[in-house]
Structures are given as structure tokens and as C-alpha cells.
């Protein structure tokens, strides 16, 4: 049994997700319903995508406290550029490049100055929050319609299932990152660096280059999260997603990725993000106070990390 969990680490979280869905379907009349499922997924798209970038960094035994702040900076940057008359595609590309560069700067500080990722990204969180606040002049800007909000467009699959274009984009992004991690040498190196840095170095892996590429790719993912966020709410609000960093870490950890690096992956993160959304939606429909929702999420995070610790200790 333990071997099974070790070989496919997303299995435990997936079982938990199934249990939660079954439980809420039985406990409420409203939960088991395609529209509700669609709503749950739509709600988890932005945090889920932030968690995708976060997963990459946590796999290298790092952490990114600035991810949501970077994405919010992205929304304000793109919106102000577009409102200033720049064509939307150019503004969007510049925004995504901007997010990539900011995250790569974190990666540069981690690799060049050998600073702990926690401290670097804590600093970047404060810096980016301030930069965004100054740049937005403290107000919320309306996102121009069109390309920038297109990901919020709703479609009906088979005339039944409500979807957004953003859901499709996020899905493709997850699949691409999954393939990169599981099926390329780069992906194997990301795991090796997170697992045992010294062993990776002696195997001839360029640790700094691998880490830098991880932060840059995470930044690119945050940029796409910014695009998704503008589709979801067509405003660029400097105060949005203030707990996005912690929510994304929650999704990653519940999804079974180890904070010690080298174990886990994006499949678990999808499940982790869905578990949080299902829990929130289900408890809301059971008319349980949102404070208890936070409490339940907190307990789940601790349980997930404890499970990780125990399985590691036994296998070591």
C-alpha cells in the first residue's frame, strides 16, 4: 500500500477528492450537479495555475511567496498598457514577459547570492505589492474587453456542460508542464536538484541553470494566471489575491508534493486545488460558517505534510 502511494503520489489526494465529492453529494441536494462542478473548477482555475508555478519551485525544495503578487502586478501592467493605447496582444505579451522576468529575478537571487527562497520571495512579495500599488495609483482599473478578458468567455460543451476558455487554457498548460517534468531531461533534473543537490551536481547537472529556468518558467505560468484572472474578473485590482500565495502552497501540499523537494508533481496539484475548491463549495452549501472552511483547510494542510513526513521517514 505504501509502495503504491510512493509510486503514484497523486493517488492519496485523488482518493481524498473522491471521498469529499461523494460526501458533499450525499450531504447536500445541490452539490451533485454539473453546473456546480463546473463552478467549482472555474473557481479553482486562477489559484490552480498559481499553484502550478508554485509546484515547480517547491519541487526544487524552494517556495514562492510572491507568486500571486507577481500575477496581480501582471494584471495591472497589462491593463494600464492597454488603456494607454497599446494593442492588447502586445500588452498581454509584455505582461507575461514582465511576470517571467520578475520571477527570474527571484531565481537569480537564489542562485547567484545563495539566499534561501523563503527570504528572497518574502522580499519580492513586499516589493511587488508596493510596485503594483504605486503603479496602479491605489485604484482598480477596468480591463478592456476583447483578448484580455477572452478567457472568461463561457461555452457549453455538448450544450450541457458550462466551460470557460480559461479552463481549457489552464488544462493545456498543466499538460505541457506535466510532459516537461515527466518526459524530458530537464524535468528529471528539476527532481534531481530538489531531491539531493550534491548528487545532482556530481551527476553533471548545472544546478544554477536548472533553478533559474524553474523560476522563469514559474513566472511565465504566473503571467498566464494573470490573463486567467482578468478573464474571471475584468478588473485589475492591486488588492486582489492577497492570500493567493498561501492558497497556492496549500493546493500544492494537499496535492502531495513534498516541501522538502524532489517528490510530487503537477497531477497532485490539480487534485489539491480541486480539493480546496470542493471543500469550500460543499461546506458553503451545507451552510457552514466560512471560518470552519478555513479551519478545515488548515487541518488538511497539516495532515498532508504529516503524511509526507511519515512516508519519507519510513522509506529512508
Amino acid at each position: 500500500m505504501r509502495g503504491l502511494f510512493a509510486s503514484s503520489p497523486a493517488l492519496g489526494p485523488f482518493a481524498a477528492l473522491v471521498v469529499a465529492v461523494v460526501f458533499f453529494s450525499v450531504a447536500t441536494d445541490t452539490f451533485f450537479n454539473l453546473d456546480n462542478f463546473s463552478f467549482v473548477v472555474q473557481q479553482s482555475v486562477v489559484i490552480g495555475t498559481l499553484a502550478l508555478g508554485q509546484t515547480l519551485i517547491i519541487l526544487t525544495a524552494g517556495i514562492d511567496l510572491a507568486n500571486a503578487a507577481i500575477a496581480v502586478f501582471g494584471t495591472v501592467l497589462v491593463t494600464r498598457l492597454a488603456l494607454g493605447g497599446m494593442p492588447s496582444p502586445v500588452a498581454l505579451v509584455l505582461g507575461i514577459v514582465g511576470c517571467t522576468l520578475v520571477a527570474a529575478l527571484s531565481g537569480g537571487l537564489v542562485t547567484r547570492l545563495k539566499l534561501p527562497p523563503f527570504i528572497v520571495t518574502l522580499g519580492m512579495l513586499a516589493v511587488m505589492t508596493a510596485v503594483t500599488s504605486l503603479y496602479s495609483q491605489g485604484t482598480t482599473w477596468p480591463v478592456p474587453d476583447g483578448l484580455l478578458t477572452v478567457l472568461g468567455t463561457q461555452l457549453y460543451l455538448f450544450g450541457q456542460i458550462q466551460m470557460t476558455i480559461g479552463m481549457g487554457v489552464a488544462l493545456v498548460l498543466f499538460v505541457v508542464v506535466w510532459v516537461m517534468l515527466a518526459r524530458t531531461a530537464w524535468g528529471r533534473h528539476v527532481y534531481a536538484v530538489g531531491d539531493d543537490k550534491e548528487a545532482a551536481r556530481l551527476s553533471g547537472i548545472n544546478i544554477d541553470r536548472t533553478l533559474l529556468s524553474v523560476y522563469a518558467l514559474a513566472g511565465l505560468v504566473y503571467g498566464i494566471a494573470a490573463w486567467l484572472a482578468m478573464g474571471r474578473t475584468p478588473t485589475a485590482d492591486p488588492n486582489a489575491y492577497q492570500t493567493g500565495n498561501l492558497d497556492s502552497i496549500t493546493a500544492v501540499v494537499i496535492g502531495g508534493t513534498s516541501l522538502f523537494g524532489g517528490r510530487g508533481g503537477v497531477a497532485g496539484t490539480v487534485v489539491g486545488a480541486l480539493i480546496v475548491a470542493v471543500l469550500r463549495s460543499g461546506l458553503t452549501q451545507m451552510e457552514i460558517d466560512s471560518n470552519y472552511q478555513n479551519l478545515a483547510t488548515g487541518v488538511l494542510v497539516i495532515a498532508a505534510v504529516a503524511f509526507d513526513q511519515i512516508t519519507r521517514r519510513r522509506s529512508a
Binding site: R188, H189, D195, D196, E198, A200, G204, I205, G262
Partner: peptide
């Protein structure tokens, strides 16, 4: 072959054999 072994515990045997030379 280093005394510290230089293998990645969380990766499988085949991946370890080819690590850095995939």
C-alpha cells in the same frame, strides 16, 4: 563512484543511471 554515492533517492534506477546523460 563517490563515497557519498551521488544517486538521487526519489528517482528510479534507470533515471539515475542516465542522470545528466539522458
Amino acid at each position: 563512484v563517490y563515497q557519498s554515492l551521488a544517486v538521487s533517492p526519489a528517482l528510479d534506477i534507470a533515471t539515475n543511471l542516465f542522470l545528466g546523460r539522458e
